[in-house]
Design a protein around this nucleic acid. Sequence first.
DNA 1: CGCGCTCCCTGGCCGC
DNA 2: TGCGGCCAGGGAGCGC
Length: 293
Amino acid sequence: MPELPEVETVRRGLAPAMEGAFFDRVSLARSDLRFPFPDAFADRLTGAKVLTLSRRGKYLIAALSTGETLIMHLGMTGRFTVLSTGQNGADATSPGEFHHKAGDDAKHDHVHFDLRQKDGTIVEIVYNDVRRFGFMDLAPTDGLPESKHFRGMGPEPLSNEFSADILNAALAGKATPIKAALLDQRVVAGLGNIYVCEALFRAGISPRRKARSVAGKRGERLAPAIIQVLRAAIDAGGSTLRDFAASDGSLGYFQHAFQVYDREGEPCVTCQTPVKRLGQSGRSTFYCPTCQR
DNA sequence: CGCGCTCCCTGGCCGC
DNA sequence: TGCGGCCAGGGAGCGC
């Protein structure tokens, strides 16, 4: 479940291999993931230089020298593995040069990128996605914020565009439970089920409370709680939870710091009340019925 | 338009 | 030991 911290961790893992490098070869094992790849996907990438690798919400964004941007979403189980062949391209197709990728099944390797580095070496990046909820797209770099994946997306929670006032304004008038509101990428970008549960716990707010009743005093607590839990998770290198591995194959440790998520029946870290599980908008919500009001 | 629900996809896990 | 069913969940789409 890569959410913002995990995607940021992946970005940091991929950036050294991608920024300033050229797509030397692109190959697809199938014509679609969650959605079909865009027309001539491989051709449009081949030869392009990666100018920057950034992130918006849960999306990875590679700005290219061609005027297009490569947009990548990891869905539920998407992972990137960086394979250094140590040689300049000739070895890239030699099976002996491929490093073993612990935990991955090659039958779910869907995309291969060969990236030619400034020093001429080739670094291979493999995208593996068991459930194929991830996808890739290309869009003109010019006007990207208004393109379909980003239009209407809420503020980046770790940027200056996010604050308690901004959050309160987005929640005002919403009758939906605060849990559902925070999962809505138009309210704030990058939160998923885990970090919404954790942020609500840290802010002492019940996931069942109407969003509009959070706007105000509780919103003053919620915005900092969101920022803090995301920062802590990024610092820990992202959580791993079942399917996730960082792009360099290492695992994060934030999962050990979950205070409510996936802890049904276990004692609340604050008051010892058993953590409750609740179904909301088709997802599980975990919360402390005593601490969260 | 806002809101809530289903679907997509696979593998891990649980109960029988 | 095998098998059926449930669960994980981000985002698109659809219906009310």
